[in-house]
Design a protein around this nucleic acid. Structure first.
Lengths: 342, 342
DNA sequence: GCGGGGAATGTTAGCGCTAACAATGTTGCC
DNA sequence: GGCAACATTGTTAGCGCTAACATTCCCCGC
């Protein structure tokens, strides 16, 4: 009986079929050097004949490594996090790690803690946390089990290694672009205040204005969704002095465009608008949106890279200061921006 | 020494601290009935004092259950799959399962097979495959290890249990809506032909037209992206006879709206447009898009529900015919549709 | 007072794998 | 020829847990 009925084959079955000890099978599986080529071939053949698969639990039990990385993500219709997750997944798989994902509805430290706890039950080796809010990042520092954590997509955070897009640089880029077009100043529709990304973008905006000696108007704050960009847009449309708006994401910018259109304000003739994210739709807005693109895939890749470094160095000398990798943002110019009226 | 230095505590440590055998600790952990309340409390206290966590590998090794569900998803900027994934995750966690996710770049049977193989290494108990293409669904039937598979988001498929939104019904709804507004016929911009969703939507469209005795124009096919909707839209705009278009997703509809606007065709006065998906942006398109909403969360929930049924019944009598659960679609009326010109 | 029965707990034997060590060849060199 | 050095293989002992069986304890009824 080639395949023992009723149960899937184990290493001993392969060993018996190949006429070796189970240890030799293990050696073949682990690419151990000292195995004769002929033996290796015989074992390999037996493995294929039986359709043998190594039992990951048994292996994990003895090696004390599960090869699983826990990811805390957000249940979101936002483009960025979804893309980042995909980037993380590819990078992890390329390095032979598995990904266990928990998505959260609410972005609170408690929810994150709970999610990490849940993942800990599964013996993940480390965590990647998509942590776009300040409170979340702060809650990350004191991890109980001492498993490494990498934060992704957050802004500035002190004690946790992290990877993020240069939000400040992106905000600066957007604002600078509008100033370069001759606009006196640039109004801003920001994201929720407790989001690190929103914070970075607003800071870049402010910095560009300061640097140019421009007036700094009071910013408005939305909730990332089109509706809020619309509501604020309605108010902005009423002020004829406004000629340039930098909106903290494309979805809100969409709402703003719509509000302006309804008010009879032409974009870009009367008002220039810049968004942030470069979602796939934004090239087809009315008008196509100038925006700031983020390389989320790269963020995911570096996040995993950082975590794996942490995982594999673990145990060596003193902990290096938490690493921090910043991915640059890039301006994508379309037709929602134009030179200021003379 | 309360916590043994250097290694995390195991069951025996808890047992020692609580003055019981490790088996009693196990019993407490597993909610076994025959444990004295006082003993249970003592064990519980010891667990907390040591910060003990059960080793999932050891447990999985002996119980032969990992509690992990493998998910094959797609690296996509499409709204639907991302939402479905979130729905799947919530449902799985609610039932105490873990999720191991692989995202694919290409939707081919080989890629899916490979992904499932990768997941098999991790001893997943079953699979949820987001399988929007016919070829993929077909490749699913002959799973080697006999682990259950549930397909999600596909259309009609013979041998695999599956959960999907009623695409045909949705296409019918969209088309019927336009016919009810007095349009003579409805043109269609479909998704890629090998996508099951595209197929269902086109069939619903065709059925509504047939039922109404309307002429059935040759459909056009895009690739789901705004650009393709735009390109086709440019052509449609040139034909003044066209008064109603049903586009198979919102992103393409966005492109179509843009093409019509550029050609000076007014929506909805000259042409009515209906999309599909109800992405968050579509309420803010120019004009706000009438579309068909899908309850992706519900799809995810039912998908997991179905898989868990399969997992937990497994071993009982004859396999029931593959289950099939259909979630209805819902029309969302906005201002991109209006009665036909007289 | 004592045997029976159930509740509460302990003891033992693996689950399937890898690491460490032991035991064989097998070669080369004096 | 004999022995050291190495390559190759086998043997043994757990990893931390749960299931099955064994034991103890206590209460009950006769």
């Amino acid at each position: 009986m080639p395949v023992p009925a009723g149960r899937s084959p184990v290493m001993a079955d392969v060993a018996r079929l190949a006429g070796v000890s189970h240890q030799t099978v293990s050696r073949v599986l682990n690419g151990h050097p000292n195995v004769r080529a002929e033996t290796q071939a015989r074992v390999q053949a037996a493995i294929e004949e039986l359709g043998y698969r190594r039992n990951s639990s048994a292996r994990a039990l003895v090696t004390r490594r599960t090869g699983v990385i826990g990811v805390v993500a957000f249940d979101t219709t936002h483009y960025g996090p979804a893309q980042t997750l995909a980037g993380i997944e590819h990078a992890a798989r390329a390095d032979g790690y598995f990904l266990s994902v928990v998505t959260l509805q609410t972005v609170t430290p408690a929810a994150v803690r709970e999610a990490m706890d849940y993942l800990a039950q599964q013996s993940v080796e480390g965590y990647v946390v998509i942590a776009p809010k300040r409170a979340v990042v702060e809650g990350l520092a004191d991890q109980p089990a001492g498993r490494p954590v990498v934060a992704v997509e957050g802004g500035e955070a002190p004690d946790v290694p992290m990877v993020c897009v240069d939000q400040v640089g992106g905000g600066y880029l957007a604002t600078r672009h509008l100033l370069d077009l001759g606009h006196r100043t640039v109004h801003h529709i920001g994201g929720p205040r407790d989001w690190l990304e929103a914070e970075g973008r607003i800071e870049g905006w402010r910095r560009a204005l300061e640097e140019a000696g421009a007036e700094i108007p009071e910013p408005h704050f939305g909730d990332w969704r089109p509706r809020s960009g619309y509501d604020i847009g309605v108010r902005l449309a009423a002020d004829p002095a406004i000629t340039a708006v930098f909106v903290a994401n494309d979805q809100m910018a969409l709402g703003t465009l719509r509000a302006l259109a309804e008010a009879g304000v032409r974009v870009p003739e009367d008002v220039s608008v810049v968004g942030f994210d470069d979602i796939p739709e934004s090239a087809f807005f009315t008008p196509p949106l100038t925006t700031v693109a983020q390389d989320f895939t790269e963020v995911g890749r570096r996040g995993i890279g950082l975590l794996i470094d942490l995982l594999e160095e673990s145990g060596d000398g003193a902990a290096a200061p938490p690493a921090r990798r910043v991915v640059p943002a890039r301006l994508v110019t379309r037709t929602s921006t134009a030179p200021a009226r003379a």
